[in-house]
Design a protein around this nucleic acid. Structure first.
Length: 807
RNA sequence: GCCGGUGUGGUGGAAUGGUAGACACAAGGGACUUAAAAUCCCUCGUUGGCAACAACGUACCGGUUCGAGUCCGGUCACCGGCACCA
């Protein structure tokens, strides 16, 4: 009988739909396993070939866990708010909700076509009011706890999306989503105080089983540094506070720089003798985007604030004060002490503006460039009481001195900024706050949630930066929940990252209309045991959701301070030619086509076989055939398998393969697991097999090719015999003593070079092996005129004979 | 510039310090077939040789070791992330 994948896959998908073998039961006696994949954005293009890679891997992991006796939660949902849908709505005049609904249906159909073992009854949709009710609820808790605040600040403004972006959404100065220019714009925005969690977000990484590069990337992004805040007096009476990581170089501070946005610039307006020049520079800087500012880093610019001098606290010297856009207002105190001898940027600036350069760490040539040390062993000079110390000794010495004099304190700084949370767009969760002229920002009472998105005429954002919702006067004008007076609703919406920051909790209890998740369900399922997702989310979704989860932990909603116990990441799938798949290159592979031509099981198997899961791989349509051929060969084994239990002939290969596949699935080495299965099948063909042997193959293959295996399981009578599907059987176990063949081929080296191989009984004594090696014809030839001085035997692997010419 | 990662046949890729190239794809040869597809068998790192075999070979240079793709030091190339963060 031929392997008719189309019929088989349709048949079993129907059976699974009906019998629900993937349903997770909250509170079962079995140990729980919560495997999670990043839920997709239901785009109009449908499933991309990039989706099945992580989905299939976690599907295999969870299928094996089920067979190992775990109560598995493997859920799916849709992260459906977002700009592409909104833009499509604008263009085609269809409501985003309708588009979303259609796209979700299409995705659902495609995901079911691939045979994933999702518990569909727990499917969530972030745009469903029953879902975003709880997104809004969490926002209200953040607000009530002082972690959501509104402030006017320069923000990243995408000129094309007409929308504010978070720092994490700006890549190389352009919008991560659309690639358009991002400019600075002063706007009043809702912010989330993620920086209050910066230290915990770093510290708690240590206890987590995340792949190392994720931890490193998150740490770098949070960017913790330690140093000191030092106060400089000025001739005008105001003190300038700076942040420095190198207080030891204070004697070398020959000038100061404030950022153009520093509050003192305006405050000193009347003192400055060159105000016009200063004002012009400030104005110019204000109109540059962050990108332009850093692009122009070839040449430092700035203006001296004439009329004010600062006083270096260690030597009392008066030093000039500048403004320059190389000092960022958003980091530290927005002001620096410049040490041109030991900082590249300060050196460059000092050369251009003719500032004094004083060497305070010996060893460089400060005429040619700043001497920036890679270690802290440099010796201090020109530094009064620090002279002769190493940098390592000088830092605490100076910190102590500053502290005693009351002019400096130790300080920790982070690069991480608070999260710009509001968006001037329609297709997002409404922010459930009301602005009352008397009471200020007032949260909506929780019993009024969800605050449903109103129907609008046009979703088009405006150039003045107002959300489309602002035109809905009926909706905007409301009454203050606090005093009952007239008030206005917030018209900005939440960013796409909101709904995805907690969705894994909703899966635990998706239909609860009283709480976002019940205590019982959260206690049972939390935390997520294994979360796989893309590296591109490391400093976005992954960081945001850790932050929200910590907050939920603090207010007692969840019982763990971290959401995910384990995090792995998959590599990208590249198009033919090793390039990123894109419509313009015409190298996009549609999973539909592969499934139609070869079947879902081949698609699943091949996407796992293609290469190292963590690395980028190139898709090849040609190579898919090999995976199909393998499944055909598995199927055809039914014709040649003889009746009987597991055979002695195949015992070693079967036990070896069980061991290999078991270990490889746990470490996501699906490619080598499949290679091992292929080797076993090849051996079955050359040595013959029994139904008992085939049974083991079917069980091992079941997570990879579930449709085909269930059909084979039925045809070979095992379904009837056990009254269970193959996927419901226990995972095969191996006996380590049965993984060895009776005889082993061992390599024989002479002076480390392979010269021959011998076959000896497994676990032979060293002397037996050496004797056998010396008796080998090829080795005998090597030994002529030589003397054996040493032997090295690696059990069951090799013998190395060290020979030396005879005297 | 800083932080990660990678470099192995024609291709995708395997190798706890222990027989480099498992497992596949492609290619070539053969069987079956009227023919094609499918299937099955054989060859398949480079050089020399009919062969047995020998020499060379995991980006490059050096080191440690009985033994290095793997460990150490240095160099080059590519990929990803961050980047005027004081």
């Amino acid at each position: 009988m031929k392997y008719d994948f189309a019929r088989i896959e349709k048949k079993w998908q129907g059976i699974w739909e009906e019998r629900k073998p993937y349903a997770a039961v909250t509170g079962s006696e079995k140990p729980k396993f919560y495997g999670l994949i990043e839920f997709p954005y239901p785009s109009g293009q449908g499933l991309h070939v990039g989706h099945p890679r992580p989905f299939t891997a976690m599907d295999i992991v969870t299928r094996k866990k089920r067979m190992e006796g775990y109560n598995v939660l493997f859920p799916i949902g849709f992260d459906a708010f977002g700009l592409p849908t909104e833009n499509y709505a604008i263009k085609n005049h269809i409501h985003p909700a309708i588009i979303t609904h259609n796209n979700i249906q299409n995705f659902t159909r495609q995901l079911k076509m691939l045979g994933y073992g999702f518990d569909w009854d727990r499917c969530v949709d972030t745009t469903d009011p029953n879902y975003y009710k709880w997104t809004q609820w969490i926002f209200l808790q953040l607000f009530k706890n002082g972690l959501a605040y509104k402030t006017t600040m320069p923000v990243n403004w995408c000129t094309s999306c007409k929308c504010v972006l978070a720092n994490e959404e700006v890549v190389n100065g352009v919008c991560e989503r659309c690639g358009s220019e991002v400019v600075r714009k002063e706007k009043s925005q809702w912010m989330l105080a993620i920086t209050k969690y910066a230290q915990r977000l770093i510290d708690d990484l240590d206890g987590l089983d995340y792949i190392e590069r994720v931890k490193i990337q998150q740490k770098n992004w949070i960017g913790r540094s330690t140093g000191a805040e030092v106060t400089f007096k000025t001739t005008c009476g105001d003190d300038i506070v700076v942040y420095t990581t190198r207080p030891d170089t204070l004697f070398g501070a020959t000038y100061m720089v404030l950022s153009p946005e520093h509050a003192y610039v305006n405050k000193w307006k009347d003192i400055l003798t060159n105000w016009d020049e200063v004002a012009a520079y400030v104005d110019e800087a204000a109109h540059k985007s962050d990108f332009e500012r850093s692009e122009l880093n070839k040449e430092k610019t700035g203006v001296e604030l004439k009329g004010v001098k600062a006083i270096n606290p260690v030597n009392g010297r008066e030093i000039p004060v500048f403004i320059s856009d190389y000092v960022l207002v958003t980091y530290g105190t927005g002001a620096i002490m410049a040490v041109p001898a030991h900082d590249d940027r300060d050196w460059e600036f000092a050369k251009k503006f003719g500032c004094e350069i004083v060497e305070v760490v010996k060893g460089g040539n400060i005429e040619e460039g700043a001497f920036t040390l890679k270690d802290d062993t440099g010796i201090m000079v020109n530094s009064g009481f620090l002279n002769g110390m190493t940098v390592k000794q000088a830092i605490p010495a100076m910190e102590k001195w500053l502290e005693e004099k009351g002019i400096g304190v130790q300080k920790v700084n982070y690069k991480l900024r608070d999260w710009v949370f509001s968006r001037q767009r329609y297709w997002g969760e409404p922010i459930p706050l009301v602005n009352c002229p008397k009471c200020g920002w007032v949260p909506l009472p929780e019993d009024q949630l969800p605050l449903v998105l109103p129907q609008v005429e046009s979703y088009e954002p405006t150039d003045d930066g107002e959300s489309p919702l602002s035109k809905m006067t009926d909706w905007v004008n409301t009454t203050c929940p606090c005093c009952g007076g007239p008030a206005k609703r917030e018209t900005d919406t939440m960013p796409q990252w909101a709904g995805s920051s907690w969705y894994f909790l909703r899966y635990m209890d998706p239909h609860n209309d009283k709480e976002l998740v019940s205590k019982e369900a959260e206690n049972y399922w939390g935390p997520v045991d294994w979360y796989n997702g893309g590296m591109e989310h490391t400093t976005l979704h992954l960081l945001y959701s850790r932050f929200w989860h910590k907050f939920l932990y603090d207010i007692g909603v969840v019982h763990t301070s971290e959401p995910y116990a384990k995090r792995t990441s998959h590599g990208m799938i590249l198009g033919e030619g090793g390039e990123k798949m894109s419509k313009s290159r015409g190298n996009v592979v549609n999973p539909n086509d592969i499934v139609e031509q070869y079947g879902a099981d081949t698609m699943r198997l091949h996407i796992m076989f293609i290469g190292d899961f963590e690395k980028a791989v190139t898709w090849s349509n040609e190579a898919v055939k090999g995976s199909k051929r393998f499944l055909d060969r598995c199927w055809n084994l039914m014709d040649i398998a003889k009746d009987g239990e597991e055979s002695k002939t195949n015992e070693a290969i079967i036990h070896k393969t069980i061991k290999k596949v078991t270990e490889d699935i746990d470490s996501l080495k699906m490619n080598t697991a499949i290679a091992a299965l292929m080797t076993m099948v090849n051996e079955f063909y050359s040595k013959g097999l029994t139904k008992g042997d085939l049974k083991q193959l079917m069980l091992l293959l079941s997570p990879f090719a579930p449709h085909m295996v269930e059909e084979m399981w039925e045809l070979t009578g095992f379904a009837e015999k056990y009254g269970k599907m193959a996927m419901q059987m226990p995972w095969p176990s191996y006996d380590i003593s049965k993984t060895h063949e009776a005889e082993k081929e061992m390599a024989v080296q002479v002076n480390g070079k392979l010269r021959s191989t011998i076959v000896v009984p497994v676990d032979s004594q060293d002397q037996v092996v050496i004797d056998a090696a010396c008796a080998d014809e090829k080795i005998k030839r090597q030994m002529e005129g030589m003397e054996l001085v040493k032997t090295i035997v690696v059990k069951n692997k090799l013998i190395n004979l060290i020979l030396k010419p005879k005297k």
